[in-house]
Design a protein around this nucleic acid. Structure first.
Lengths: 339, 339
DNA sequence: GTGAAAGCGCTAACAG
DNA sequence: CTGTTAGCGCTTTCAC
């Protein structure tokens, strides 16, 4: 920078102003500086800039997950993409922190919670009992939670409307004439699972259908868990299943096929996510599309805005979902009523 | 740091020495400093340290991928995990850079290729024609490529032995009596696909079996592409298929089932990856297990070593794979020879 | 509109 | 073994 200041015949301050697009620089000087920057292929040292300006232009993404679920569920890669693209678009760098153990957390926490390395934090909503988010709130770092946190006083977060999504899906099954509607939920300690289960209950209650525990089983978002969950469900003879993830739905349909059930005649399925897979399963899966990429992208936007304007007031953003109707849920049930 | 130096009654240099575990500090002074650090819950500003020491302790992971493949293939999350855990273990921070367009690359390249923000770079081997790795080699940054690069002069890289893995898998099918062995390869412009295809050819050649183009089709690593690839393969009536990815193998088996073929009696399958899914497919999938997590973890180790000791000589590390035999490939073919 | 000067918070010779 | 003194490469008042 010294060099390019000399070459352009100005001071370092002026070069700095040009680089940072400050006003109050005469056009010709700006042009001259820009040219020498071009010719020198100079690029500012980001560390030095961060130290001087107290802004690193780096955002941290914390993923407090057990090892398996991180790579079982396509949700994370997709979310990460949205975040990464947003970071790039707004000229920020993304730091990735996978927290898979308590030791990880102890190592990572001080690194991310003090001013210095990061301007702000995105954290995936953890499991019930997880204290990470509260600890993070205790620090002065701007924070946006992805997914509804359990203790949500004064945190900004972004989530999809899981309750309503599940409600809509199950209501659809009811409308088609299904009456023994089961659900394969996700892990009970995540807010996602809780909310989807809540939507399931709401829809049943609304139509005065019983909420039967023998029709409710739990998986862990993997294909395999869906397969076994479905086998456990068999004795209860459901005529439809609302599954909290496409991957589990695929596994569940595999179990149904093996048992000789015909889909959707004997049993209907609705998944959640709308993975690319869903359109090509046998039969194609009716599912709830959630804007995962948008979730990540918007989270970055919110975080950046809070970094700029202060962390209060906490913002809450809920994105809508969409029911994508394919053939796994059938049309009106064969025994069914007209709509 | 100023404060804690004063509180401990020493100079800042001494505090620095203690923090960085330098020798030549008396035990009692060290202890005193450590105590005040504890009580103050002081944590050094990493940006300042990076600027002063010219080492950021931050590694960059560059993923030059088209959008879809990044989240279709569980390979990436798993790899990322290995890398993230290694970074954490060695007290480094991981920066994630997804490159999904030429503009992305132009924005990201200067950020990562100059000293300042990163100490070193991990880059996923790109596609044929991709110039990113060469550009990166032109910079002075330590670099480790994950996967065999196309132009491999003087780059350090780490890869699994894809040629040998495919050779072993196909040889196994031959040994079981299969004679019309097809393959569903990955995208032709990736080194992974090329190497696996090479191993396929080697095995056939060794036993003087013809390499029949009608038995060779291409997918893109997704389940769906495997499904359609298998349908394209049907007319050629293969009695076995070596599939370059488990996900595609699952899709291919789905197509085979739909066509009324029995696995492994009519047709055998071998996949690649050994995803958790593979053990639970119908039938359980014989597949090549590759140490993806290790790949990532070791890549970090190599990079860190090069950062410490200089980037020359380039290191090449090839990890071994393992054929996991399940029932999708059958035992000796029903028409078969004894082994 | 531009330059001079003072840091940002830490590390690293260099003395002692 | 410890303190003093310069910086690392940039941003940012504050004068002019």
């Amino acid at each position: 920078m010294e060099d390019i200041a000399r070459q352009a015949g100005v001071s370092r301050s002026t070069v700095s102003r040009v680089i940072n697009n400050h006003p109050h620089v005469s056009d010709d000087v700006r042009k001259r500086v820009l040219e020498t920057i071009q010719s020198t292929s100079f690029y500012p040292n980001l560390t030095a800039r961060a130290l001087a300006s107290q802004r690193s232009s780096m955002l941290g993404l914390l993923l407090p997950r057990n090892v398996s679920s991180f790579f079982a569920d396509p949700f994370f890669p997709r979310l990460t993409q949205g975040i990464a693209q947003a970071c790039n678009q707004f000229n920020n760098t993304l730091g990735l922190f996978l927290i898979t153990s308590a030791e990880d957390e102890e190592k990572i926490f001080p690194r991310v919670s003090r001013k210095g390395m990061l301007d702000g934090i995105l954290v995936q909503s953890g499991q019930y009992g997880d204290q990470l988010i509260e600890r993070l709130m205790g620090s002065e770092m701007p924070l946006v939670v992805i997914g509804r946190p359990f203790y949500k006083e004064d945190v900004s977060y972004i989530d999809v409307d899981n309750v309503n999504a599940a409600y809509t899906a199950v209501s659809h099954l009811i409308r088609l004439g299904r009456r023994r509607i089961a659900t394969i939920a996700g892990a009970a300690n995540s807010s996602v699972s809780i909310d989807r289960l809540e939507g399931y209950r709401l829809a049943l209650n609304e139509k005065s259908l019983p909420v039967d525990p023998s029709l409710m089983v739990e998986g862990d978002f993997t294909e395999v868990s869906g397969y076994y969950a479905m086998r456990n469900l068999m004795p209860a003879k459901p005529d439809a299943v609302f599954v909290a993830a496409d991957l589990m739905a695929i596994g569940a349909m595999r179990a149904a096929h093996e048992a000789g059930l015909s889909i959707p005649d004997d049993i209907a399925f609705i998944g959640f996510d709308d993975l690319p897979l869903a359109a090509y399963s046998t039969p194609p899966l009716t599912t709830v599309r959630q804007p995962i990429y948008q979730l990540g992208f918007n989270a970055v936007e919110i975080l950046l805005e809070q970094i700029k304007n202060g962390i209060l007031p906490a913002r809450r953003v809920i994105l809508n979902t969409e029911l994508i109707i394919r053939s796994s849920c059938g049309t009106t049930h064969r025994k069914g009523l007209n709509i």
